[in-house]
Design a binder for these strands. Sequence first.
DNA 1: GATGAAAGTGAGCGAGCGCTCAGTTTTTTT
DNA 2: AAAAAAACTGAGCGCTCGCTCACTTTCATC
Lengths: 233, 233
Amino acid sequence: MDVTATQLLHLRPRELTSAVLCAVIFRQFSATIRVQKEHVGVPNLERIILAALDIGRRKGFHSTTTRDLAEASGLSMGAIYNYVDSKETLLRMILAGVDYAVEQAIVPFDKGEQDDPTLRLHGLIRRHIEVSDILQRWFAFAFLEIKSFDKVARDSVLQSELRNERLMADAIAEGIARGIFIDLPPMRLAAMIMPLLQDWYIKRWKFRQRDMTSVAYVEAVINFVDRAIARPM
Amino acid sequence: MDVTATQLLHLRPRELTSAVLCAVIFRQFSATIRVQKEHVGVPNLERIILAALDIGRRKGFHSTTTRDLAEASGLSMGAIYNYVDSKETLLRMILAGVDYAVEQAIVPFDKGEQDDPTLRLHGLIRRHIEVSDILQRWFAFAFLEIKSFDKVARDSVLQSELRNERLMADAIAEGIARGIFIDLPPMRLAAMIMPLLQDWYIKRWKFRQRDMTSVAYVEAVINFVDRAIARPM
DNA sequence: GATGAAAGTGAGCGAGCGCTCAGTTTTTTT
DNA sequence: AAAAAAACTGAGCGCTCGCTCACTTTCATC
């Protein structure tokens, strides 16, 4: 996995696995990680982060102890501190992973890639749901643990949400200009689509219970939104 | 405030203040609360709960220490334990308050009160946003701290969400039967309205930043939903 | 397979946590 | 205003937490 190359190519949602994210994090945090070899460090870092996401989902990050992480990851407490110099850093790593995924999968899908506003909006919706489906625990963690972050990290999550909203608002504005969408403030319409996208990783319990797949959900959201923003005849 | 009477009358959203909820909680938890006089106990209980909601919003409930609560509420640590025999009980009290508010303001608004499906759906949306506007911190706490609850409490929150969805789905089903709404599974449509309602108390920072009032949000959601579920011509 | 480097181990530390209780203050009753 | 009841106080207890480090094991290189 050559990270330099992927940064130029932009990864598609399906290529953004936890392993890929952990490789990126391993490099990005090399200053604080004491382990040097990637072939050892990346799989172990992934064990630690997946354990943190898994336990954090059930108990919350603050209730997740380093002893929990050691047991769940199969590493000793001392080994964990070769990768993460504090729980705070672990939080930042996970956040960096989510940032990277959004940067790779959603942001590049702008006007250059697709001119038609309806298709562009559909693409943004589809990519958001697809990437958050694969990285469900990462996205849910960032959303639900936002209170645990410091101000800088918290703002970066909120800015990321606003940027995604703005990408959708751009497509909607274009559709309004072409007379195919209803003439309402684009940011306001985009703000009503965002929670529908986030619901896919926040309410997983509900969708699983109803045997809904991500593909079916993408379709349902797109149809719902299409009707809501279509210009009335 | 006579609770027996209000349980028969059903309170409207605007009457469901934190003070009212704390009075109800004070009675409901009289077995574990050592303070007996309501005129002393209810205001103090409210100080404790509002402190827990306020600190919990910023740091999360698990990072909220009993010393934090003592300082913020103006009571000593010992006094707090006259009201709450453990942090776990405090969690249950807040949840009981939210349950009561939903029970009072949203659930009674069913077919008996309003026959027209469109108006019934509008009423459910409006009441949900209104009550969660007044009790914003309570609702946000229940949503974001759901992981901190035990299984029984967690299930009760999820069941409450499903019940609210079902109320909306009933109105939608009626509208479909009358040929005025699009013929799609009512529960699926209701599931796409729910996150729009929850967004009002989860993303308060965003709406405040945009100077949006709850009245304007109610209108925006109603219009958005109306277009999305209207039967195509 | 010897040797130095890299990585892993887990008992133990200081700090801070939830919670208690013997004593004090305030309120109510008479 | 004295007596009894109700409510409040905060230092301190036992425990668990995040984190460390002297030591052991594993790996890479020749």
